[in-house]
């Protein structure tokens, strides 16, 4: 769905943030991980057309990003910002969610429908008339997710979705991601919460100092202990536990681990 070739970017000359990135992103849900400053957000902004590449090309569904404005790209690729306060600018929850669909030229009735559906998904459908700024941080974040989901784009990128979320919030986001996957949408995320990556994303790409140093199935990626260490990334807790106990299998979720243990006992 997304093809990136030879992509480089720098905010200041002589200080490159991304160096010669080649990636082919398919339908698999994908997590981008790496240390702060590794170039993850810059990479996503380039996909979204918010920044223009220095060198190299980005194609999204066969459209060249360079020749499109960010607003045009909004119809195929949605981005939830890390800080919800940057994204909220309407006085009512419902208006906020309808802003995107209306901009895309969807008629009002359809936009309302999309918005309601998205709000229901994140559990804010009973707060339609509230001022978004009166919501708690975690609710604001969910609202931002809803307002991008309502745009019904084929690609959705979540920048740090689990920030400020409690267990319940994380479960809600998991549900949203699952629903989007079922609708055949490509879900991507930038995230530091490795447990969340292991539980929800099929593919993981590790960025370090502007380069992709590891890319593959999440299970494969979290098994590469040494490379992860060099990128200053830790495997999920359950993966580390399994490894410390000496299992050869790489575990991604607690359920997996328990199942394995039960089977072992039964043998």
């Amino acid at each position: 769905m997304i093809t990136v070739s030879n992509l480089s970017y720098a905010y200041q000359k002589g200080n490159p943030v991304l160096i010669d990135i080649h990636l082919n992103i398919d339908q698999r849900s994908t997590a981008i991980i790496g240390q702060n400053g590794a170039g993850k957000t810059t990479f996503v902004k380039l996909l979204k057309g918010l920044l223009k590449p220095f060198e190299g090309e980005v194609f999204i569904q066969n459209q060249q990003v360079k020749n499109r404005t960010a607003a045009e790209l909004a119809k195929i690729i949605g981005l939830v910002f890390q800080n919800p306060n940057d994204q909220i600018f309407k006085n009512k929850v419902l208006d906020e969610v309808m802003f995107g669909p209306l901009n895309m030229g969807i008629d009002k009735q359809q936009a309302t429908e999309n918005a309601m559906e998205a709000l229901e998904m994140v559990g804010l459908h009973d707060k339609l008339d509230m001022n978004p700024h009166d919501l708690s941080l975690s609710e604001k974040k969910l609202l931002c997710i809803a307002s991008v989901v309502a745009m019904d784009t084929n690609i959705i990128i979540l920048d740090e979705p689990t920030i400020a979320q409690d267990y319940q919030g994380k479960e809600t986001i998991k549900k949203v991601i699952k629903t989007l996957k079922e609708k055949n949408k490509l879900v991507m995320t930038i995230i530091h919460d490795m447990d969340f990556v292991a539980e929800n994303f099929e593919r993981t790409i590790v960025f370090n100092e502007g380069k992709v140093i590891l890319d593959g199935d999440t299970r494969f990626v979290f098994a590469q202990k040494d490379i992860l260490k060099s990128a200053h990334v830790e495997a999920p807790e359950i993966t580390k536990l399994g490894e410390k106990l000496g299992y050869r299998k790489t575990f991604l979720t607690i359920e997996e681990f328990i199942d394995y243990k039960n089977q072992e006992r039964n043998l």
Binding site: A70, A74, G78, N103, M151
Partner: peptide
């Protein structure tokens, strides 16, 4: 950026 991301020209 946030507005452009949501389709505002």
């Amino acid at each position: 950026d946030a507005q452009r991301s949501r389709g505002m020209e």
